[in-house]
Every structure is written in structure tokens, then in C-alpha cells.
Design a protein around this nucleic acid. Sequence first.
RNA 1: GGGGCCGUGGUCUAGGCUGGACUAGGACGCCGGAUUGUCACUCCGGAGAUCGCGGGUUCAAAUCCCGUCGGCCCCGCCA
Length: 583
Amino acid sequence: MPREACGVLGTEDEGRVVFLAGWVHRIRDLGGITFVDLRDQSGLVQLVFRNIPEAHDLSLEDVIRIKGTVRRRESPNPKLPTGEIEVWVEELEILSKSKALPFPVDSDEPRANEETRLRFRFLDLRRERMQRNLRLRHKICLSIRNYLSERGFIEVETPYLTRSTPEGARDFLVPSRLEPGKFYALPQSPQLFKQTLVISGIERYFQIVRCFRDEDLRADRQPEFTQLDLEMAFLEDPDELFTLIEGLVAHVFREAIEVELEVPFPRIPYAEAMLRYGTDKPDLRFGMEIVDLSEVFRGCGFRVFAEAVERGEVIRALPVPGAAGRSRSELKRLEDRAKELGLGGLVWAKYENDAINSPIAKFVGEELLRRAAEEANAEEGDLLLLAAGPAEKVAEALGALRVELARELDLIPRDSWALAWIVDFPLFKLDEEGRIASEHHPFTSPHPEDIPYLETDPLRVRARSYDLVINGVEIASGSIRIHRRDLQERILKLLGLTEEEAREKFGFLLRALEYGAPPHGGIAFGLDRLVMMLAGESSIREVIAFPKTATGACPLTGAPAEVSEEQLRELHLKIELGDGARP
RNA sequence: GGGGCCGUGGUCUAGGCUGGACUAGGACGCCGGAUUGUCACUCCGGAGAUCGCGGGUUCAAAUCCCGUCGGCCCCGCCA
């Protein structure tokens, strides 16, 4: 007789003889009668043992198989889906014993530190919450595949052993045995391959694909992570993609967590996001919008502000609702935090009891502060935080304060979703050495109107790129690509690559662009982050079956590990440990 | 590369600031016993840690100092 799922048994099965198998989830041994909650993938059911002495020998997490009869319960358990019934066991077979557990697996909250959980990941994953997360991940992937497949997209795999490309993150390298001294690199993303596929006539490509970046880890960053990668031919207007992706995301939210999203999502130009929220990934679940008050304070009696405006710097204000009652020491703490964030200082103004209280009131007058409040939409009972300095620095610092204070004041509504497109990113930025670098990547198409400024004023050139932001988290990023070789070469030259370098690194793409490349564009989602958010988790490690620790190690397998001399010899490698490096 | 928090029986944790009755306490788990309607079963008894590791200060270190290893969070980094 085949075994059946235990978690779906109900009163309709009353009287049936069933064969069940699974793990011993809980044991309640009352002497003459023993209750065991049996767990399999489908859920739990209560087993009843009478006159079966072996039942007293069961341990948590033993794997057993039973034959029994479904009976209606004398006292049902409303907490269990199968709580109306129980199974009276007639035959018990212990398939596999379990040692005493390092931590309980019947708890939703992890009862061990993360390293222990990862070392015993096979047990940690038995916990219902982790099973739920992995199931949710599967559901999301399935709904993505169904949605895209129905719209003519096909999933194509691209190589993991590929060539190293300049720029971007550090590559993971794989030594070549057949070509001594040469290396493959694991892809940071399938960017060039997907563009090549579209040029190859795969007009609608997608892939749920692993990507590798050898950078330091974070709660939302792993060295290997998964992208939903997507590319379409004849995409010239980002709006076409936005509509498709809005449909996709709404579909995923509906299928995975039964949430109806409003479409279309707002579209916010990068410059506006930086001004109003101090970041290119604004959390729109709450207000507290930053306002530029440079003109209000131009020539005012507070010299620090007046001089900053003269220098071309900015004065900006962050309204903090209901925070006028803050104590001096709390305000001091805010100022210290502002300095940590790179500001010279922080000026506050309290709007309380129809009066204005601020250390700069005597310099600028109440009238000016009243105007500031009006512009910043600060009301009775609010606090206004004012900062002066270079636009970028002020934006970034106030943006950080905005999020921190909103959290602190509990202004972020729970179970709410705020999605938005950020558009019109600059094409270039300056790197640490002051050189021109891509903001997105070198294959991003410049905004057609701005192409004339490529050489003359590159930092002013807007890109046809876009990010999708959910609740203040960057969840997807993409662009319309360059599909003409001359423009692509121009951009690579601007980035400081010689023609020779360009041909060596990106030759295959440049060549492909010469043989009838359609206009195209696409987007890539951080799938782990998306699943994390939908699962309500705060680390992507909770939605990855076998993640790595902050040092890139895997406590389960012990990776990374040393290899044998023989392996090194075959790969023509010699290990030389420099200062500070340990074997 | 830098900053912060943490490391105590199998697991989670109290104690640490202010060193001495800490002979390191509790909970869960484990072992033995009792228990025929429990569902986080209950009750009785028991075993189990030289406090991550190394060094230092001190009459005395889980506690203070230095180093080191490991974990977590953040900055840098992540086209």
C-alpha cells in the first residue's frame, strides 16, 4: 500500500485504514497511551499508540512508518487542520532513529544562533517557517515563469564558466586546466549573453539565474545570488517594459501572498527622488518629504546658512511629524547622528503651542522660520530639521535621517507596499579617482536628447535606465541598451577603454552589433530580495536553502577549503600567502 | 580596509559595569522513574559547562586588559 499525506486527513477519512510515514514531531507519553504528532511535507496528524510498547522508545525526529485507522477525536484540536481526527496505530516501523537535537525544530522562531543553524541546516530547514519560505520562493518562481511564458518569453540558460570583464564587482575566478595560466570567471550577471541572445532572434528572453560577485556580504547580499533576468527585442520605450513588469509584479504578489497592487507604479525621476527623499531608492510608505529652502534662507541673518547659499550649496529641511516635544538631549543625539552622516551640523526648529523655538530664531526671525515650516509642510507639533552643505551630501544625510526617524517614530505602516520606478538616472558618475564611470553599466543607452553632450558634458547625460523600488529597497534595475556599434564604441572610449581593450573585452558584443542588432532592453530582479520581502524576512539567508556566512563560509560543508597539491598541480597553480593571509 | 555588538552544559540564556558564598543560576533538550485522552502533557529524580582560544594584571578572573578565532550588523566595496 502506498503511503499517503498525513496533513490532509479529515473526518471524511473516518474508518479508513491508512499507511503514513514521516518524522516524529512531538511525543506525549502518558504511560498506557502515547500520542505522537507525525509530520510530513503536508503537515501534522496525531497518532495514538495503545498496546504498542515500542512507542515508548520513540525520539523526536525519528522517521517512522505506520499502519493505522482514522478515527474521529473525542476532544478535537482546533489548532490543527487535521484536529478533528487522529490515527489509531496498529503497526509501527522505525525507519531511522534521530540523535538528540541541537535545537528544536518545532519552533517558528529560531532557537539557535545562526552558525549552529547553518551547520545543521538540514534540521533548520525542517522548521515550518523555513519550509514556508522555500515554498514561497518556489511559488514566486513558478508564477514568474508562467506569466512570462504566456507572454512569449522563453527561458534560456547561459554559461557559468565565462570570461572576466572589466569594471563592476570583483570576479570569482576558475583556473583552466587545459590552458595553463588562463582563467574563467563566474558571471556577475548574464548581461552580455542576454543581449547576444536578443540579437540572435530570441526576441523575448528570461532566465532565473545564479550570479556571482566577490564582494563583502550583507544581510541582503550573498556572493552567489539569484536574478530574474529579462530582455526584449524592439524595446525602445521604457513604458512598454514598465507595463509588462507591473503586470508581472502584480501577478506575483497576487499568486504568492494574495495582495492586490495598484498599477501603474509611480515614476519618479532620479533628480526628484534625490531631492525629496535623499536617496535613489525612496521608501514611499510614509511622507516626511525633504524640501529645499535655499532660496528662503538666501541672505538670512544666520551666517552659516547665508554663506552656504552664496557658495552654491543648499539648505534643506526634513519635517518630523509630532516630534516638537523632543528633549535637548534627544536633539543633541540627532545632531551627533547628522555629523556621523557627514553634515557639519543640524539646526532644529520646534513648532509648538503656536510658537517657534529654534536656536537660530534670534538670527533669522520667526517670520522666516514660519515660511520654512509652510514650505516644508510642517504643522503644529512638528519638528523641522535643517541642514546646509553640498546638495549631494545634504540629500544623503537627510535621506538617512528620514528613514531612521520614521522607524523610530513608528510612522511606517505595516503590511503596506509602496512600489515605484526611478527613471532618468545619470549615465555616468565619477569614481573615486575622478574618472568617468558607468552609473548602471556600459551598455546602457543614453537619453537620445542628451547624446550631443556625451563628450562635452558627460555628467549631464541622462540614461535610459530605471530601477524598481519596493518599500525603500532596490529590487530591480534595467535599461534600454545601445544597439549600434558606433555609439557603443563611443561610450567605451569615454569610459577610458582603448579601441584594442574594447575589442578584447567586449569584442563579441561589438561584432554582434554589426550584424543587424534590433533595439533592445531589459531588466534584472534581485530574486532573493524579492522573496525576502514577500516572506517578511529581514535577511536573504532566510530564503536561501544553503547560504554563506558574513565571511563567505558555509558551515555545513566547510567551504571554502584547501585542495590537494595534486589538484593545484593540474591547474598549474602555486599558493603564495602574503602578509596577513593564513593558510 | 574600518566601526559596533556577541561567544557561558547539546541548545538558548542569567551573571560581567562594581573581580571574592559562582560550589556558575534558569529554561528547553537528554537519561531514569511514574502516568490511559494528551496536544508546548504533567509530576519526581539525575547526568551534563574549568565560561571560544592564548597571554597578561591580581592573593584571587566567566567578570578587567591585550591578542586571536568564530558569528551577526553597519561603512567602504557591490558596472
